[in-house]
């Protein structure tokens, strides 16, 4: 194990422990699959992995991608679940009265609109992201409940297609997710836009002075988050044939769990998209894997909490050490041997 890690890690030591984290996460993922697969071989059948493990997490996975961007800027969006349900419900109602096309348009517009509201309030009125999205969590879900009077909204042709189509055995939602994951990974790691997000998360004032249009950048990522929630809504509505306002409640915290497990700091400035992507699959395997092992839902909650706590502790220990090391690097610049970085 150690050998593989070293060879993989060497070319990218620049990223400090980031790469090692992701490798550790992958190892955990493999270990989990191996353990659960041994206990119940059904789990590792292609059919189960695709139809259950992957499909059950994809909506949360999709929402976790833009949320990673938001958390890197030291923001948070607690309203993602509510946006998804609100856009799914508004779209479903529009489709029922005005046809599928309107359904799709309304879903996307509602998603983008909710994101815009979050972004404007946070950026223009300078209200803390946690509070804003806590309020809109109630607001969007409340509107969804109000317009339906607490009743269900049903799937229409387009969402049924989205939620149930397999292309050569691969669910459509997985293909969309992979495409989105690639786009978001590139956006974060290879573009100036991505770098400005890290800068905003580390020091917003300094970033503003450096000439980056911070307001616009922040509003854009909240809108992206809203639109991705709307896209997730298509799959969700299609997969369950109907939705009701109450499913949004626990979704926000699940998305936060994924992101934190993936190594993105809730304080901003630190994190990467690959960690989030691997964490999505770890949570997926935990959820569906424990179900297959007949472990009651309650124990699953505990295990998920434990995984979260352990990963937080490890990240916190590593973060402390990294901080200390940075201090050493700076103070002993004349003795480069102490710095354990390979030459660039």
């Amino acid at each position: 194990m150690a050998d593989g890690m070293e060879t993989l890690a060497t070319p990218k030591v620049k990223k400090r422990f980031g790469v090692n984290f992701n490798i550790a996460l992958i190892l955990i993922l493999i270990a989990l699959i191996a353990v659960i697969g041994t206990v119940n071989p059904t789990f590792v059948t292609y059919n189960y992995l695709m139809a259950v493990v992957v499909k059950n997490i994809m909506e949360i996975g999709l929402m976790a991608l833009p949320m990673t961007l938001i958390v890197i800027t030291a923001g948070i969006d607690l309203s993602v679940g509510s946006i998804m349900i609100f856009s799914a419900i508004a779209g479903g109602m529009a489709a029922a009265s005005m046809g599928d096309g309107m359904g799709v348009i309304v879903t996307l517009l509602v998603g983008a609109g909710c994101g815009l509201v979050n972004g404007l309030v946070i950026v223009k009125l300078k209200i803390n992201a946690l509070i804003t999205t806590l309020a809109t969590f109630f607001l969007f879900r409340g509107i969804a409940k109000g317009i339906t009077h607490g009743d269900s909204v049903y799937s229409y042709d387009f969402t049924t297609f989205a939620g149930n189509t397999d292309i050569k055995g691969v669910p459509l939602v997985l293909i969309v997710f992979i495409a989105a994951a690639i786009i978001f990974t590139l956006l974060l790691s290879k573009t100036g836009f991505g770098r400005s997000l890290y800068a905003l998360g580390m020091n917003e004032n300094a970033t503003r002075y450096s000439g980056i249009n911070a307001d616009r950048t922040l509003i854009i990522i909240y809108i992206i988050s809203g639109v991705v929630c709307a896209i997730a809504a298509f799959f969700y509505l299609g997969r369950f044939t109907s939705v009701k306002f109450d499913v949004a409640n626990s979704m926000n915290l699940k998305v936060v769990t994924v992101i934190v497990l993936g190594g993105t700091s809730i304080l901003g400035g630190v994190g990467d998209m690959r960690g989030t992507i691997i964490a999505i699959f770890i949570i997926a395997v935990l959820n569906s894997g424990l179900t297959v092992m007949d472990i009651p839902i309650d124990v699953q909650t505990i295990i998920q909490g434990t995984v979260l706590i352990i990963s937080l502790i490890v990240y916190s220990i590593l973060g402390e050490r990294a901080k200390k090391r940075r201090v050493i690097e700076v103070s002993k610049e004349d003795e480069p041997r102490l710095v354990d970085k390979a030459p660039a």
Binding site: I28, A31, V35, V307, I310, S311, I313, V314
Partner: peptide, 18 residues
């Protein structure tokens, strides 16, 4: 390597817990 070891051991505990 030691950090990673800590991490792996810690999460092995979780698996054991599972």
């Amino acid at each position: 390597k030691r950090f990673t070891l800590v991490l792996v051991i810690a999460l092995a505990v979780v698996v054991a817990f599972a």
